[in-house]
Structure formats: structure tokens, C-alpha cells
Design a protein around this nucleic acid. Structure first.
Lengths: 131, 131
DNA sequence: ATAAGGGTTCTAGTTACCGGAAGGTCAAGG
DNA sequence: CCTTGACCTTCCGGTAACTAGAACCCTTAT
């Protein structure tokens, strides 16, 4: 398969596939005489794996780790679970942070009448003029 | 005030202050004969503003917009509120996305026994071998 | 033979800075 | 007077994960 077909099938752009190759996340595939990359079904499967993991918010470095565990028949599932639990903690933290910001902004926005008059509690708060 | 004092007082690093100047988020301050930047109380206040807005997740571009509204005595509060509401929508979206990811990962992690055995529903899912 | 639609490599840009190097300046102390 | 240490200056390179675009080659169909 050419890179374009693989891109269409996996939803990973050709640009990204080449990028993943350049950083050694995926191995360099065979080439045709003209220099076109040729991908196997196995390569496609790995790109599906990457797409799924990236979609769940894992960094490329984490995906590399997960991939190497995936390719190691003898890995301990505890290692995989550890990575996922770490990610879950990050997510919880991020959600908490965003909720706090949301509450603040919600309060400020609700107190701003939002018409054509200039006075604005939001800017007052940012400027340290609150209360 | 020297840049270091300003940094200490505002919590914005000297590096960041110079960076903000380089992208014209803040004006270039006076210099001493030796070339040291000298900041006024007004400059400090603006950096506080920036710090607060950045802390609430606004991009530097958004902060620039907010700052210019702040400095415009005749702005309509609706404009400020619009920016904040847009940010609130982004936050809501992001939270929703993170919660969805969290649910997925939680389920997968719970189904993985996480011991020294190799079989792992998490990797199976990533590889498209689910069910 | 040519045109459309692949593919190739390379460079540069994105965001919001941080780290570090090389060197000038300032205030205090011996 | 000189040194020491803590400042300050500019500039270069790096970060994450790509994307955009240029310049060029290959394949396939008409």
C-alpha cells in the first residue's frame, strides 16, 4: 500500500506517518524502485494503534512505550496499567483545573452586563481592582 | 524597578517579560545608561493583568486583545464578555472530551488485572482486538 | 504526449516560553 | 583600587507534534 491509502484507511495523515518514521516511532518501510513507501497490513495495524492511543491523549513518547510493550509478548500487564493510571491522574488534575477556571470565568461573565457600556467587572478583576 | 524586582513582584519571569516585549505584548520600557530596563508601577500592573489572564488559560493573543480593551476607556463590555464566553465554551468542550477519555481509560484499566501476567485488555483495545 | 493526481525531500512556521553562553554593570568589602 | 557575586544584556537553540508549502519526480489514463 502507498502512503496515501494507508492515510485514508487509518486516518493518520501522510505527513504524520512520515513524521512518525522520522522520529523512529514506526520503522522505515520498504520502498518501490521509484522510492515510494510500501506498507504492510502489520504497519497499518500499528498506525491504528497509534491513532487510538493518541486520540486518548497519550503523548508520542508514551505511545512509543505502549507500542514497545504491545510488541513484547512477555510484558507484565502491570506496566501498561501503570501508564494508564498515570494518565488518568493527569486527566483528573486537568479537569479539576479547568473546572476551577470555569467557575471563575462564569462568575465574572455573569456579573458583566455585556452591553455597549464600558464598565466591566471582568477587566476590573484582571487589573486587580476586584471588590 | 529592574526586571528582576518586577519578576519577583509579579511572578512573571524575567525571561517572559523580555519575551512579551519582543512580541509587542508590552511596550519597551525606558533604559538606564547601562541599558537596564526600568519599569514603572503601571508596567507592573499590566504584568499582573497578563499573569492573571494567562493563569485563566487565555492565549497570549487573547491577552493582547483583552489588554487593548482594558486600555480603551470606551470599549463595550460586550466585547470583553464575548471573549470570555468563547473561552468558556472551549473549556466546556475540553472538559467533556477529557471526561469521555477518562471513562474509556477507567474502564480499560479496571479490566486489566495489572499483575506480572502479559495479557492486557488495554493493549488489546488499542490494537483493535476488543470484545 | 500530456495532464491529473499520486509520491519524494527539505525548510520554515506554529505556541510560549526555558536554558545556557558570552559578556557588561553595580554595590559592597578587603 | 580591585575583586566578587549578583545582577543585567543579547543571542542561539530547543521543546511537542506536527502542518504548509516549495521544488521536483512517478504513475496512470486519455
Amino acid at each position: 500500500m502507498n502512503i496515501g491509502e494507508v492515510a485514508a484507511e487509518t486516518g493518520v495523515t501522510a505527513k504524520s506517518i512520515r513524521y512518525y518514521e522520522s522520529i523512529n516511532l514506526i520503522p522505515a518501510p520498504e520502498r518501490t524502485d521509484a522510492g515510494y513507501r510500501q506498507y504492510s497490513d502489520r504497519d497499518v495495524q500499528i498506525l491504528h494503534f497509534i491513532k487510538r492511543a493518541r486520540g486518548l491523549g497519550f503523548s508520542v513518547a508514551e505511545v512509543a512505550e505502549l507500542l514497545s510493550l504491545y510488541q513484547d509478548r512477555d510484558r507484565a500487564s502491570a506496566e501498561v496499567k501503570g501508564i494508564v493510571e498515570a494518565r488518568l491522574n493527569e486527566i483528573d488534575q486537568k479537569i479539576t483545573e479547568l473546572e476551577s477556571i470555569r467557575a471563575t470565568l462564569r462568575t465574572l461573565a455573569d456579573r458583566c452586563h455585556g452591553d455597549d457600556r464600558p464598565d466591566c467587572p471582568i477587566l476590573d478583576d484582571f487589573a486587580g481592582l476586584s471588590n
